[in-house]
Design a protein around this nucleic acid. Structure first.
Lengths: 343, 343
DNA sequence: GCGACTTCTGCAATCGTTTGCAGACGCCCC
DNA sequence: GGGGCGTCTGCAAACGATTGCAGAAGTCGC
């Protein structure tokens, strides 16, 4: 409203053209790397210099309006504060920035209404692509992308029938590593502290857990599985309490480091020594879990690679919207520390 | 280039106008909350319905081109993976989103060239404002903002003579809390593990350290101060090694939790028990430092408030570019845990 | 020396909104 | 009944770039 504009009017491409003695269209061609070849070397140089001297900067708005490409991509995360997202975002942003894209970031709070609004807003800004790190079941984000014809990829989560490329961890394999490790230590009564329902990582890890037990010759039906309400410390603690109340277990495979920390807390309350009386494994290898007491045995995933690959997938999808979808699964590895020990 | 457009052409305001039997300008007024009052109730309703039916979405590009406002703000951070930034970003994004702004995020890597390029890119996108969480000395970001007439605020760092609003922690007071705590425990030979030079937080905390010693009646000249090369674990460990080599100290006030963790590591290597033989304090209260071994005594800062306040300041600056600058200092509090003990 | 061909530049339309200006219309009051 | 005023809507010109088309040179070969 009240933008008291004392702003020095920015130079436009028309100014540059006039100053360089050429037509704006020629200036445009000279200034755009892709079309520079269409003008004489000499003209290109002259226009370039004038542009430099006048401090000209392309207006992404005007260019985007004409070309219908904003050179912006959006990234939706549930909650940036969750430590697994920053590395993903950082890697993705780096990759995209290298290709000349700016990155719009927004938090959905796992709130579908909010998510809807944010996707719509991004559509208004004509984002060239969307990276969805939030998609839970019930999300309309995918449908909206289709409606607005915005290329999109999923990261960290899959979604059935979304018809989108995705990059995820090999959760099944990762959990199998944890289970095999515990079995190797002699554990037979192993429980699973699962993630909240409706989230693909939770489902995959739960399935991986059962499969791994079977492979180890154990009966999955006798292995307790309890789902936490959320991927949070407190939810983990509560679920753990139920697990311990049932009794009889010597190890817990948590779906997540955050949940594993909940286990630490409940164990502390009960005077149980993690790593001795009770073995615990996490998932993600968040920063600093190597300095917990005890250091957490966990499954390390490739955060940065996930972001970078997702960015690549998105770039492909933007370049060729009709190309077939691809799903990448990134290898996970077990990091053995002090929270697991022989039974 | 090859966007094989099978895209269903989006409805424009002209389509809506035609369908509603009014002129595009009227439709524009009806669809814009600020100008809705200029048209009849009845027209507004009709246009609104048609827009809804046609699935019309305002093109932020076209609107921005005309109004010279993009409704986008940019946020520059050095490194999103540094745990203090996510909460700041999250709070800022929430506040800005509520006001209808989208948020462009980019990492500078503390690389001035990169920073320059990113600010330029954001200027191309005609951001309405910029939040700089990265500004170190020597940064041209501030100058660029002035040149491009982009309202900006600093967050977490100050910059002399920048002439910008800023929101920071009360570092001096925060460090004083840590020092007073240690002195209260009987420590007299206290060292400071300072942050890298050229960064305002490092300078403020260093100054706070000296001032606090004086206030406690100790001689600051006999208190060793060594600066780490960076705010990182490894840099902290190296600087700590030099501190311990010099000998004679019973406590270390680290400028940062990350540096404090470096102290943990070096202490471990030397068989020193943190919390007993050596007391250590951090700064920031990053997630999970409460579960370190030992739990870290540290100064808690108001991350979220910082982001929210910075967003507010930026909103003010955008609304009234010529209004006077304001500097907020947020109160810090000491959280006593296991890493400090009586000498 | 002329036609065909290539290479470079200019012309003008276009992307989708917003907004100053002015006209139309209805109403009130003298 | 007419002048004045207020309210609503239409007109057209921006905003700053891109691009299909066409014309102007210049080149080459015969």
């Amino acid at each position: 409203m009240s933008r008291r504009t004392s702003a020095p009017p920015r130079a436009t491409i028309t100014d540059v053209a006039r100053e360089a003695g050429v037509h704006p269209s020629t200036a445009s061609r000279a200034l755009n790397p892709d079309t520079r070849g269409m003008v004489t070397e000499e003209v290109a140089a002259r226009v370039g210099q004038v542009a430099e001297r006048l401090g000209w900067r392309r207006s992404a708005l005007a260019a985007g309006l004409r070309t219908r490409r904003s050179r912006i991509v959006g990234i939706l995360v549930p909650d940036l504060v969750n430590p697994i997202f920053p590395p993903i975002l950082r890697a993705a942003e780096a990759r995209l920035a290298a290709e000349g894209y700016a990155t719009l970031v927004a938090n959905t709070d796992n709130d579908l209404t909010r998510e809807h609004m944010l996707v719509a807003r991004m559509a208004e800004h004509l984002v060239d692509g969307l990276m969805l790190a939030s998609a839970a079941e019930g999300s309309e984000a995918v449908a909206l992308c289709r409606r607005y014809a915005i290329p999109a990829v999923l990261v960290n989560r899959r979604l059935r029938g979304a018809g989108l490329s995705s990059v995820t961890n090999d959760d099944v394999h990762g959990i199998a590593l944890a289970v095999a490790h515990l079995v190797g230590l002699g554990h037979r009564r192993i429980a699973h502290l699962a993630g909240p329902p409706g989230i693909s990582t939770a489902a995959d890890r739960r399935a991986g857990f059962r499969a791994a037990l079977v492979r180890a010759g154990l009966d999955p039906r006798s292995a307790p599985i309890i789902a936490a309400e959320a991927y949070s410390r407190e939810a983990g603690r509560l679920a753990c309490a139920r697990l311990l109340d049932a009794g009889g277990i010597t190890a817990i495979v948590a779906a997540n480091d955050m949940l594993a920390l909940g286990v630490y807390e409940e164990a502390e309350r009960r005077g149980i020594v993690v790593g001795r009386t009770l073995s615990v494994t996490g998932f993600n290898d968040m920063p600093f879990v190597d300095r917990m007491a005890p250091p957490l045995t966990t499954v390390r995933i490739q955060h940065a690679a996930m972001g970078a690959e997702a960015a690549s997938l998105l770039l492909s999808a933007m370049a060729a919207p009709d190309a077939p979808r691809r799903s990448l699964r990134l290898r996970a590895e077990l990091v053995v520390r002090g929270s697991t020990g022989p039974t």
